[in-house]
Simulated scan of single mutants.
Amino acid sequence: MPAVFAPAKINLYLHVTGRRDNGYHLLDSLTVFARDIADRLTFTPAPSFSLNITGPFADASNSGLMEDNLVLRAAKAVARACGRDDGFSITLEKNIPMGAGLGGGSADAAAAVRALEQLWGAELGDAERDALLLKLGADVPVCYRAATSRFEGIGDVVTPVDTALPEFHLLLLCPDAHTVTKDVFGAREKAFGERAADVPRGAGFEDFISWLSLTRNDLEDAAQALTPQIKEALNFLSELSGCRLARMSGSGSCVFGIFESAEACRIAAEDCRKFRPQWWAQATQIL
């Protein structure tokens, strides 16, 4: 089959609204996906599953035990659900930075589930699939859909956004540091926040930015305390010409800026590469 793409996830806002007795946090987030920033997976039939990781971020992905990789865990979960004892040799081209809040591992796992359902002609029921995805991680259900969505609860409530967002351009900027999600949640000290207002229907760019400015990322303070480079990146991005809003995605360390103009976004990306060459900078739009 053709290569399967796993697009980067961006949380335009992220509110922490509560916590269950079992420790799982309750979230509310408007989640979008990058049009041209994605990992790439290819599948070759094989007697069992194996994984080869390539690409610019392969070294970071290969740093842990291969058996713990979410792609292999997802593939084996689908095989069990489908009663299959064969597998695939999977090549994962890592183009999304690790530990950046862009959902790279979750997107890869979700893409593996989609691909195997197609390759095996699997007919997983919605409830069975949703349970499988959620067990892999809180971000995996929304990454499976890979479309603008509202993400709530512990990741178990994913609602497609049925109103078109205005056109805008994103500059993603990752400083030379990464975060660990559980550490960021553990360092968070503020009270729980409220659910955001619904996305305004038919809003133009200015109204959308005004609405989005009333939201926030409730993990920013904790992430910055653990990883000061995030604050530096946010300050740097905020000062770039044409940046209308700068915010962290997920639990960091990647931050993003929203621009109305493609040209302003392109110039800002060039400035990032010129003045912060050790950082990763990429301009994009959403799917």
Rank of each mutant, 00 (worst) to 15 (best):
G153A: 05
L72H: 05
R40A: 07
L119Y: 14
R35Y: 04
E232F: 01
S29V: 05
G202V: 01
P175M: 05
A34P: 06
P45M: 09
D130E: 15
D221Y: 01
A75F: 05
S149C: 15
A264S: 15
F43P: 06
A222R: 08
A34L: 09
A146D: 02
P56L: 11
A222S: 14
E206Q: 14
R19L: 00
L219R: 08
E167F: 07
R244A: 00
D156A: 00
V78G: 04
A38G: 03
D183V: 00
V78S: 05
V78A: 05
E220T: 15
F49S: 10
S249N: 04
V16H: 05
W211C: 08
V32H: 02
I209R: 13
R216E: 01
F43A: 12
A164M: 10
D108P: 06
Q282Y: 10
N11K: 02
A222G: 09
A147S: 10
L132E: 04
G125P: 10
E270N: 07
E206K: 14
L245K: 14
A281C: 15
G87K: 07
K182Y: 00
A79R: 15
V140F: 04
N22K: 06
I154D: 04
P175V: 03
P277S: 08
S50N: 12
G202E: 06
P97C: 01
L70Y: 04
L165P: 03
M98A: 15
Y24Q: 11
Q224Y: 00
L237P: 04
C174H: 03
L136N: 09
G242V: 13
L12P: 03
T17G: 01
D130S: 15
I267N: 02
R195V: 14
L65I: 08
A109I: 06
T159C: 08
T181V: 00
A115Q: 06
L12D: 03
D28K: 07
A8Q: 09
Y13N: 15
D86K: 02
I10W: 02
R84P: 00
A122D: 05
L240W: 07
D139F: 09
S241G: 08
P277R: 12
T179N: 01
L245H: 12
C243N: 14
F33I: 10
L119A: 13
I209G: 09
E260F: 03
E117A: 07
Y144L: 07
V78M: 08
I53G: 06
K76D: 04
I96D: 01
G99N: 02
G137P: 05
D36A: 10
K182N: 04
C243F: 06
Y13M: 15
V113C: 05
V71Q: 05
N22W: 04
S213A: 13
C272I: 12
E270Y: 04
V184M: 02
G125L: 08
I37Q: 10
